[in-house]
């Protein structure tokens, strides 16, 4: 799209468009879109910040920073540790990595999304809803156990199957 607009512009007045692009680095279409979006962000932003604006800014920018500088490195490190434990190189030598990775990912995802309820820190939950808040931690542990157990079982079945498949070929 950018290039199409650029093409049109260059036919219209090649020299001016070329100079604009050299000065700005992108096509005019991109600039117009961004300016419109910044205007909207400004309109909504002053209303968003009308209140405890330092904390709201911290939350807005902090959400991105915490994600990029804490969460992403955290799960990258966890995954690297898992691969290190699995050891060796090559897909064959560590066929069980994903049998830990997938249930760990799913369990971690549930914890991430439902962290307040699972850790039982929502004090108003019980008085407000009339429901018990104790159930969430137990459910998370049970679901995690089921995920890991199911994954282990699947691995076992696969190993068995490949072992029985492997044997006749060894006889050959």
């Amino acid at each position: 799209m950018t290039s199409r607009v650029y093409g049109f512009m260059s036919r219209l007045s090649g020299e001016a468009a070329h100079r604009f692009r050299r000065w700005y680095g992108e096509g005019p279409y991109q600039l117009l879109l961004l300016l419109a979006s910044f205007a909207l962000a400004g309109y909504a932003g002053v209303r968003l910040l009308d209140g405890d604006w330092p904390m709201i800014t911290v939350w807005f920018v902090g959400a991105a920073l915490v994600h990029d500088l804490v969460l992403v490195p955290l799960y990258a490190l966890a995954d690297r540790a898992l691969r290190a434990v699995a050891g060796g190189a090559g897909r064959r030598r560590r066929p069980w990595v994903n049998f830990v990775r997938v249930p760990a990912f799913l369990s971690g995802l549930l914890l991430l999304v439902w962290f307040p309820l699972i850790t039982g820190q929502v004090e108003r939950y019980e008085p407000v809803t009339g429901l018990s808040a104790d159930v969430f931690l137990a459910r998370w542990l049970l679901v995690s156990a089921a995920l890991f157990a199911g994954s282990g079982l699947w691995l076992l079945v696969r190993r068995r199957r490949s072992a029985t498949k492997g044997r006749p070929s060894q006889v050959h």
């Binding site: 979006s37 910044f38 909207l40 962000a41 932003g45 807005f60």
Partner: peptide, 10 residues
Amino acid sequence: FYGSWVFLGA
């Protein structure tokens, strides 16, 4: 609500 509008523009 306002956070959504800031996001939606981008």
